[in-house]
Nucleic acid binder design. Structure first.
Length: 565
RNA sequence: GCGGGCGUGGUGUAGCUGGUUAUCACUUAACCUUGCCAAGGUUAGAACUCGGGUUCGAAUCCCGGCGCCCGCACCA
């Protein structure tokens, strides 16, 4: 098993990762991607993006990373995403308020600020360190707070997830999708969480990269068109009833282990993505959240976890967020966040409706009459009690006596229903995926490090060397190098030191292939192609190189290109 | 955030009962050499985590900040 220190050390040495602001001593939970890390990250993003956009027909957006307070009020992050804190007035020591009173209440974690404050006052709880008086309870929110605009502008927050940028755009996107579900929207970007104690390299960052997908589906229909294609594929699950199972996607849904087809399909989809970028399938599983572990918005949630030197680590969360987000934004914004499902045929329904007698309402309720009438029309006749209907107008409940309305049987044509879509969210921690890919690729061969990165994600695809940096071998190698680069293949030209050292250097950064121009090249126009994991070589024609490399990067059989000895 | 451990070239380290120009290896660069897997030679570059204190003198002792590791807590 690779040691995290070794992996991180290599990452720094070879330009995958650098601790941020290192010359100033660094900041915990912040890392910069170096040249190779950035290339690796871009490659992973591109694979992910293509799977979702080209593969599933989803659309991609790019939204703001700062949002006004109301967005995160609605999302719940302002209230839920915070710890309650008190500080000692004497020594300034901060404490988790709910921890100080946990012996005074059976469920201290669930108490509000005021309740905890009352408990502290009535029980004379003092600072555990110095006995000083405690401040009132404050929230320590894990979001970074800022001000939008100069002076006392609006309060804003750095987004803790990219998801909200998609939710608040739902009406636009639904329209873009020509008012049809399902609607899949993806976004790649940064999120910010002011972690209390970030650790473990890039596993827990304060500023981190996410790839999120919000899939809006009909709440009544959580089937998926391509589900049949994958139902016999297997998943490794750890359910929250304690069961560990290898089970097919189809059986998991049938037996109710995974609650619906969409969720199950995207768990499989996630697994295929992760394997494609180089996560070891043997070190991958899906763990279902415990009921109390579930986020404030989630109805069901499975984490894809990879096994690292840190232990099992969440790298993707796949949640059924239900209608939570859209409902909340509808409430807070007053904008309708629904989809409209048209019936095949408009249906005629007969129903009773309340018809207000506006001629009598007017004189009685004056200015309010209009609003009251409207509320009455929307009220259900079944709610009539003792001959009167009670409606709520501007927060006031008013009982309207029977003589002010009639109940009439009406025929209505209904052409469909409005409902708030449910959201299935595969949310990827990109930095954690990158780290997993690096650690799973890390291997030792005869005391040397070989990064067995898959060709699709490797930052450098081909090392190009002249066997000797003379006798025109270097000129030929440089021509070859340029041809490959112009052909869209990332290369690395190297003519320094021994050939073995150059191979080793490429092995260490995960370059899958190396091409060497040697003396025979001058004679018969062939070069050697060396494969990283086996060190085996084949000889191919100089003129074929671009095609050979393209085939090799796809893992295709290369025998047709091999020149006999 | 708490408790414990630790910070020396790019990496890994020696020195740390204070005292010349801070040890060694790998790495990196240039040149020579080298006819396929980190060969060799010459030369060069490169470090005491930061700040304060004690002292004639601090990599070394003391205090604090920052960072890393382990445990607890936290983890949408």
């Amino acid at each position: 098993m690779a040691d995290a220190q070794d992996v991180l050390s290599l990452c720094k040495r070879r330009g995958f990762l650098y601790p941020s602001f290192e010359i100033y001593g660094g900041v915990a939970g912040m890392y910069d991607y170096g040249p190779l890390g950035t290339a690796l990250k871009n490659n992973i993003i591109e694979i992910w993006r293509r799977l979702y956009t080209l593969g599933e027909g989803f659309v991609e957006i790019d939204s703001e990373t700062i949002g006004p307070e109301v967005v995160f009020k609605a999302s719940g992050h302002v209230d839920e995403f915070a710890d309650k804190m008190v500080k000692c007035k004497a020594c300034e020591e901060p404490y988790r308020a709910d921890h100080l009173v946990k012996d005074l209440h059976p469920n201290a974690g669930a108490l509000g600020e005021k309740e905890i404050d009352d408990l502290i006052r009535s029980n004379n709880v003092v600072c555990p360190a110095c006995g000083g008086e405690l401040s009132t309870v404050e929230e320590f929110n894990l979001m970074f707070k800022t001000i939008i605009g100069p002076g006392s502008g609006r309060v804003g927050y750095m987004r803790p997830e990219t998801a909200q940028g998609i939710f608040v755009n739902f009406p636009n996107l639904y329209r873009y999708n020509r008012e049809k579900l399902p609607l899949g929207v993806i976004q790649v970007g940064r999120g910010y969480r002011n972690e209390i104690s970030p650790r473990q390299g890039i596993i827990r960052l304060r500023e981190f990269n996410m790839m999120e997908c919000e899939l809006f589906v009909d709440p009544e229909d959580k089937t998926w068109p391509r589900f049949g294609d994958v139902s016999s594929e297997t998943l490794r699950l750890l359910a929250n009833d304690g069961r560990e199972l290898e089970i097919t996607v189809g059986d998991a849904v049938e037996q109710g282990v995974i609650c619906n087809q969409v969720l199950a399909y995207f768990m499989w989809f996630t697994q295929e993505f992760l394997k494609a970028v180089g996560v070891d399938g043997e070190r991958l599983r899906f763990r279902q959240h415990e009921k109390e572990e579930m986020a404030h918005y989630a109805a069901d949630c499975w984490d894809a976890e990879s096994f690292l030197s840190y232990g099992w680590t969440e790298i993707v969360g796949i949640a059924d967020r239900g209608c939570w987000d859209l409902s909340r934004h509808a409430n807070f914004s007053g904008v309708e966040m629904t989809s409209f499902k048209r019936f095949d045929e408009p249906r005629e329904v007969e129903r009773d409706r309340i018809k207000p007698r506006y001629d009598k309402l007017g004189p009685m309720y004056k200015a309010k009459a209009g609003k009251i009438g409207k509320a009455m029309e929307e009220a259900d006749p079944a709610a009539i009690a003792d001959g009167a209907i009670t409606v709520e107008v501007d927060g006031e409940r008013i009982a309207i006596p029977g003589e002010l309305f009639d109940v009439a049987r009406v025929k209505e044509k209904v052409s469909g229903v409005r409902s708030v879509p449910h959201v299935i969210e595969p949310s990827h921690g990109l930095d954690r995926i990158i780290y997993t890919v690096l650690e799973h690729a890390y291997s030792q061969k005869d005391d040397q490090t070989v990064m067995r990165l898959s060709p699709t994600v490797a930052p450098i695809k081909v090392g190009v060397f002249p066997l000797m940096a003379r006798d025109e071998l270097d000129d030929m190698a440089m021509d070859l190098d340029q041809e490959l680069r112009y052909g869209g293949i990332e290369t690395y030209y190297d003519d320094s030191g021994s050939i073995g050292r150059r191979y080793a250097r490429m092995d260490e950064v995960g370059t899958p292939f190396c091409i060497t121009v040697d003396y025979r090249t001058r004679e018969d126009g062939t070069v050697t192609l060396r494969e990283r994991d086996t060190s085996s070589q084949i000889r191919v024609r100089f003129a074929d190189v671009l095609n050979v490399v393209r085939a090799a990067l796809c893992g295709a059989d290369l025998t047709q290109f091999v020149v006999e000895e």
